[in-house]
Structure formats: C-alpha cells, structure tokens
Nucleic acid binder design. Structure first.
Lengths: 221, 221
DNA sequence: AAAATATTTTAGGTTTGCCTAAAATTATTT
DNA sequence: AAATAATTTTAGGCAAACCTAAAATATTTT
C-alpha cells in the first residue's frame, strides 16, 4: 500500500462514505462534504484517477476502484481504532472522539495500527457502533450487538431475544418490542444500568439491565 | 498557544535541540539537521521571525524567543509522551518509538495530550530517559533515576547510593563504582534482572538486581 | 589587508492544494 | 427542440515549502 497525503486520504474517505448511499458520487456532493470548491474537487479527481484509485470520466461522476476501496477501508480502520482508544482508554466523551481521530487517522504506520488494535483487544465496533475493518480491510456489515452494548443514540433493529420464557415475552409485548422493532437508547443510568429507549413513534420506555441483556440487535445500515 | 504547521514545528524543535549545545544556531547546522537546503532554512527563519518565535538578523544565526521555547517544549512533551505510550503500552522496541512519535507529535490537541499524560500515569521520562515537560512546559533538567530504571545505552552518573553498609561499599569499591562514576547499561537479563554495565575505560561489570536497586544516577546533560 | 574560501541570502522556479471567473457540458423547463 | 438553469471543467492565480544557481556577506588564509 502506497502512501497518500492527508488531503488525498480525506477525499478517498469522503467518496467511500458518499458512494454507500448512491452508487456514484458527484463533484458538488463531494465539494459540500469536504467544505471545498467544485474546481478543487475536479483537480483532485484527476490526480486520484491517475493513481488508479477511482474511475472517472469528465462530467460523469466517480466511483472508487477496488484499490481505492482498500485504501478507504484502511483509513477507516485507523480512524475507528483511534476513536475506540480515545473513548475507552482516554475517557473522551462519545461526541468528542471524532474530531481528534480525524487527525490521528493520517499517521499511517501499519505496525502502529496493528499494535494499537492488539492493545485494544481487537474491538469490533467504534464508540458510535460502526464496525472496525480488520488488517485485510474486511468489515462486518451488520453484526449483532447486545442492547447492553448498544451506544447511545445509535439506531438498531431487534433481531434476537435470547431468553424465550413467557415472562420475558409478556414484558416485551407490553412494551411493544419485538423482532424487527427499530429503537435507540436515549439515556443510560449508571446506578442500576437501566436505560431509556425510544422506539418508532412511541414515547420512551425504561428497560432494566436484566432485560437489556437478553435483547440483541443489528445496526441500521 | 497558536497552531503551527508540521514543517514549522520541525524547525522549532530542531533549533531547540541544536541551541542546547551552542547558544546560537546557524543556517547550515539547521539545514543538515533537517536534511534540507540552506536556502529553505532562510525562508523559514524569516517566517518564524515574523511570528516572533525566534531572534534572527541576516547572517547572524538564530535563537528561539521565550515564546519559541514554549512552543518547542510543547512539541517535545507530545513527542515524549507518545514515545512512552508506544514503548509502554504498545510494546514497541526502544529503538522504534522515535520515528512513529515524529508523526504523532504533530497532532496538537491539548486535551488529547493531557488525557494521554493522565492515562500513562504522568511519566517523568521517555523510554530513552529524557524528561517529559509538564503542561506548563516545565522540564526536570537532571532528575535522579535508580539504576534499575536506567534505560539501556543511556549514559548517567552515579549520584547516590542508598544503602551505606560496609558490605555494599566494599562491593562498589571492588567494581570501581563510586559517586561521580559515569556508566551505561549494555544489557539487561530478564531471568534474574541482573545487568552488564560499562564504565569509562574499563570492561563490562555485572550488577545484581539487589545492588542496582541501591544505586541512583543522574542523566548526562 | 587582500585573496581565497565558506556561509548565507536572494532571485526565480516547482509541486501541492486551494481559490475565482469564465467556458463547456448536462439537465430541466417551457 | 430551444431556452434556461445547474453542474462541471478549464484557465489562470496564490501560498506553503521546497529546490538550484547566483549574489552578498563573513571568515580564514596567506
């Protein structure tokens, strides 16, 4: 894997994220995302095309090549590992990690990142719940997570309930929660590890730790 | 504290280190240190002078201003904390940390560095034995270190022996070690924590862990 | 103290990544 | 399908940080 400038890396990363929704990314979209001007985007697209990181024909938008995707996943791996480190080890707040990780992610030393990964215990998701690509760039698209481990404000869909007793099902029915219910945690209470969640249209519901331990979800996206 | 480019930071740091020996630094010295050309150095000196980070008159060499020194100590703080992190937490080898820290040091987020410092337990020296400046840029010029904690290949001078029994003094005399003796550790053995040290002119001597625990030294410089 | 040598600065050029304004192309209306 | 609007690209410039070659200054030698 060659080395890229901070600027090139930011473009690659932005294209990767944008092309998730659409298939192909436009000059204006990218300029908006990166807070730069369309003319600057065109400049960079020419350069990245020359480096074979993306497919691009004038006026036709662009998509990352396979090589470009590999580079993107590598940057995302660095970013999310640093986010995890900041939140888990340095006790940064959930909402402060992104900005700092934006800088750390550009220190591209493979050994550093692999050792950081090992030190952190090979985490699978960053503090926002997004999956962390492995050394090979493999990424788990949608893994199950226990409600206990679901980050605050991260939407997820109930996919499994481990205890099948009538008692738990009664409780879940009462709270209008079932497989397929989309929800997010609004607040976690350290005292008893209970939480308030929000489902689709309804107001908040309180979930005990015992209940949360039995509910598994998949991230949206 | 304002923000500086990576390049500016590298110049400031290099001047700080060079002016330790001499009082004033010359264009050629700095060019050699930074593997750049004298003309580039002159360019940068004008810029740093305009930013009041150094004193400089054409052809007369340069010295950091007080503000420049503060900036330098801040960069050195970041560098050494990252070195400590890499060696202590990520288990990098002693001789690999410097290069990686050269990159990490330029991520200048005060909160990041202060939290890193806290996470590491406010270490006083980096893995090379060099002191780590505190938040205010204060640096311990020459602190005592126990021989047990002296890094390999780092010269230091015996400044204190805690046990004053005749037995230890006999042993030290036999090995030609006394207050003022300059030595460095050549090898440490994990098995019994014994070590081989080298003093001035003489060949290596072996020191037991028990003995090392009673010898304190000051770093050279 | 003049000449020779070494150092430092100036002048002008390059690349990267950004910009504005104008031209080219594509998309949308009418 | 022409006209209008929106998007994208081109052309030409700018600042940072580097470069080479030549000029200016300082230092050393004779």
């Amino acid at each position: 894997m060659l080395n890229f400038s901070t600027s090139e890396e930011n473009y690659i990363k932005a294209i990767f994220h944008l092309q998730k929704e659409d298939g192909t990314v436009t000059t204006n979209e990218l300029a908006r995302e990166l807070k730069t001007k369309p003319a600057s985007v065109t400049d960079m697209m020419k350069k990245l095309k020359a480096k074979k990181l993306l497919h691009y024909e004038a006026y036709q938008g662009f998509r990352l090549s396979n090589e470009g995707k590999k580079v993107a996943l590598n940057i995302i791996r660095r970013h999310r590992l640093w986010e995890y480190f900041l939140a888990e080890k340095l006790k940064f707040n959930w909402d402060e990690v992104h900005e700092v990780a934006e800088h750390l992610e550009h220190v591209s030393n493979k050994k550093l990142i692999d050792k950081l990964d090992e030190f952190l215990g090979y985490p699978r998701n960053d503090p926002h719940g997004d999956p962390i690509p492995d050394q090979e760039g493999r990424i788990e698209t949608s893994r199950q997570v226990c409600l206990v481990d679901l980050p605050v404000n991260k939407q997820a869909i109930v996919s499994h309930v481990s205890d099948q007793s009538s008692e738990i099902l009664e409780l879940l029915k009462h709270k209008n929660i079932g497989i397929g219910t989309k929800l997010e945690i609004k607040k976690k209470f350290d005292f008893d590890h209970s939480m308030e969640i929000k489902t689709g249209r309804l107001p908040v519901a309180t979930i005990s730790e015992q209940l949360a331990k039995n509910i598994f979800l998949k991230y949206v996206n």
